[in-house]
């Protein structure tokens, strides 16, 4: 954006305060905690409050730092953790693709509709994101269960004779994730598609391009930033998703958010939970940076 020298100069007085308040808050309550997680991932679980040993000890004027790599070694020994990471990545990846395939035409249709209809449609898409995700997942528990409406319906019309097992399977997890995250795919796609200049498409059709060709070669490449933002908004949180696999998934649905939750709440093994979080963060760091770069462009209006 273009700087407004007069405006900015006069803002200098309160500038430090204006930058400082959100900066300090986010630093203290968002960034700093990650370093504490990193620290605790190198400590040992102990029967104490809090349940881990300190990695720094001060004795005889010497600071001793004991880094215990045991937690990380333990994670590589037990295949459960590897499968949980791979399972999360697979489920998040496929769900993201499904969201994109379903969400893109929806965003496209909203962007092409009239102004009045646009507001209403956007509201309809946005409203579920403000309604408890827990409740929306819960709604599917009733629908997918073996005596649920979908099975009743399928048996009623004679497609199947005995109920399908849908709840507590990976299938239910896909349904839940796509259902919950679809709006987060549609909104950035819409924000991007609505800015497109129609004259480009008209030019393409004047030059003899079919509707599909001009869509594929003009609209899709132009909406790259929207696609990246939407996919990241779905993929990154889905990798760490806990509620959906816990309520809709079966015992064989291994996802890392669920494993972390169990290590923390059931086993009370804080160091292992921390190590799991550190590795998850390492896996997600590239997509998060990609998202941040993309978002920074949007926030500053450079897109």
């Amino acid at each position: 954006m273009s700087a407004q020298p007069g405006l900015i100069k006069r803002m200098l007085d309160g500038r430090r305060l204006v930058i400082g308040i959100p900066f300090v808050w986010l630093f203290l309550f968002f960034l700093l905690p990650f370093f504490i997680v990193l620290k605790i991932s190198f400590s040992e679980a102990a029967v104490a409050i809090p349940p881990y040993t300190d990695i720094f000890t001060w004795a005889n004027d010497q600071l001793t730092v004991v880094l215990n790599l045991g937690n990380y070694l333990f994670l590589t020994e037990d295949e459960l953790y590897l499968y949980a990471y791979l399972g999360s990545l697979k489920i998040a990846f496929i769900s993201t693709l499904l969201c994109l395939v379903i969400g893109y035409p929806m965003a496209y249709a909203i962007a092409r509709s009239g102004r009045q209809a646009q507001t209403v449609l956007l509201l309809l898409i946005m409203m579920p994101t403000w309604t408890a995700i827990l409740i929306r997942v819960y709604a599917w528990m009733g629908l997918l269960s073996s005596s649920g409406l979908i099975n009743q319906f399928l048996m009623g019309i004679g497609v199947i004779s005995s109920p399908l097992r849908m709840l507590n399977t990976d299938f239910a997890v896909y349904v839940g994730i796509v259902y919950s995250y679809l709006p987060f795919m549609i909104l950035p796609l819409f924000a991007n598609l609505v800015k497109h200049d129609n004259s480009l498409l008209e030019a393409a059709s004047d030059l003899g391009a079919s509707r599909f060709t001009s869509f594929w070669r003009i609209t899709v490449p132009l909406s790259k930033n929207g696609i990246i933002a939407g996919c990241m908004l779905v993929f990154i949180p889905a990798v760490g998703e806990f509620v959906i696999p816990e309520l809709l998934g079966g015992p064989e649905t291994l996802m890392i958010g669920r494993v972390l939750w169990q290590e923390f709440f059931s086993n009370r093994d804080w160091p292992i939970a921390s190590a799991l979080a550190v590795i998850m963060l390492l896996i997600l760091i590239v997509p998060i940076i990609l998202f941040n770069k993309n978002q920074a462009k949007e926030l500053e209006g450079k897109a």
Binding site: F30, I36, P237, F242, W270
Partner: peptide, 28 residues
């Protein structure tokens, strides 16, 4: 740049990570 990152990262950060890290901060 860091400020921008700090503002946008919480949008996508998996909740289990944010939750665990904040708890550990409060305990510390």
């Amino acid at each position: 740049t860091m400020f921008g990152g700090l503002v946008t990262a919480p949008l996508v950060m998996p909740e289990v990570i944010t939750g665990l890290s904040l708890l550990l901060l409060f305990v510390a």
